[in-house]
Structure formats: structure tokens, C-alpha cells
Simulated scan of single mutants.
Amino acid sequence: MMFFDQTVVRVRAGVRIDRGGNQIPDWSADAVSRQTILEVNVQPTTASEATTPERVAVVTGWHLQSPPGVDVDVTAMDRIEWAGMLLEVVGEVARWFDPLDGTVHHVEFDLVRATG
């Protein structure tokens, strides 16, 4: 049975203009927006380690799912704060639709943290 008892914070970059006049993401503390997302399920998925003489790189992954009937405001460009970590959204956010009424049944996406 899956439990939806975890809380995450969606972190979305603001926008700034670079020297070339292009809009680029601004991850500075004053520019980001945060939204608390309640009652999700986060589970571990993968872990890998690569060792070189210069460093040890560790990549850890998680999978987030919302409960039935709940859509969440998260995109592939966002980051997620959870369990004291800042995680990257990997790939697109999957919205699964109810075949009977066409509304979002639930949302799923993967997260990753790379250290080292």
C-alpha cells in the first residue's frame, strides 16, 4: 500500500536577462518562488557511485507520486526540496489522466541528487 504522508517544496527559478539580452533562469534566493506540496509519496529508486583519483561522485534517485485526484504544479525545469536536500526533476512530469472523465488521476516524476 502506498502512503501519501510526505511534504516537499517546489522551487522554481525566476528569470533574469543575460548580457546578450536572453532570458535565463535565475536561481538566486531572491528570485526563486517556493510552493509547499503536501501529501505526496517519495521513494528511493537508484544509487550509483563513480570513483576517480580526484573524487567520488554519488548519484541518488527518487520517485515522487501524488495521490489519486491530485495534480501538482511542477515542471521539468523545477527543483524539489525534500529531507534537507535540493533535488533536480529528471525528465518530464508525467500526468496520468482518468480515462472516464479526462481529469488528472495522479502525477509522477523522478528526482536526482548528484554529489561529489
Rank of each mutant, 00 (worst) to 15 (best):
Met1Trp: 06
Met2Thr: 14
Phe3Tyr: 13
Phe3Cys: 01
Asp5Leu: 13
Gln6Thr: 02
Gln6Trp: 03
Val9Phe: 02
Asp18Val: 12
Gly20Asp: 03
Asn22Cys: 03
Asn22Leu: 05
Gln23Val: 08
Gln23Asn: 11
Ile24Leu: 07
Ile24Ser: 04
Ile24Lys: 05
Pro25Asn: 11
Asp26Phe: 06
Trp27Gly: 12
Trp27Cys: 08
Trp27Asp: 10
Asp30Cys: 03
Asp30Asn: 10
Val32Thr: 14
Leu38Ile: 12
Glu39Gly: 00
Glu39Asn: 02
Val40Pro: 00
Asn41Arg: 08
Thr45Glu: 13
Thr46Asn: 09
Ala47Pro: 00
Ser48Ile: 07
Glu49Val: 06
Glu49Tyr: 00
Thr51Lys: 12
Thr52Val: 08
Pro53Lys: 02
Pro53Tyr: 05
Glu54Thr: 12
Val56Asp: 07
Val56Trp: 00
Val56Asn: 08
Val59Glu: 09
Val59Thr: 15
Thr60Glu: 06
Thr60Ser: 09
Gly61Ile: 09
His63Gln: 14
His63Met: 12
Ser66Thr: 13
Pro67Ala: 11
Pro67Leu: 14
Pro68Thr: 12
Asp73Asn: 09
Thr75Pro: 04
Met77Val: 14
Asp78Arg: 03
Ala83Leu: 02
Gly84Arg: 04
Met85Ile: 14
Leu87Arg: 02
Leu87Pro: 03
Leu87Tyr: 07
Leu87Glu: 06
Glu88Asn: 15
Glu88His: 10
Gly91Tyr: 08
Val93Met: 01
Arg95Val: 00
Phe97Tyr: 10
Pro99Asp: 15
Gly102Lys: 10
Gly102Ile: 00
Thr103Tyr: 14
Val104Cys: 14
His105Pro: 04
Val107Pro: 01
Glu108Trp: 02
Phe109Ala: 05
Asp110Glu: 15
Asp110Cys: 12
Leu111Tyr: 05
Val112Pro: 04
Arg113Asn: 06
Thr115Ala: 11
Gly116Ser: 09
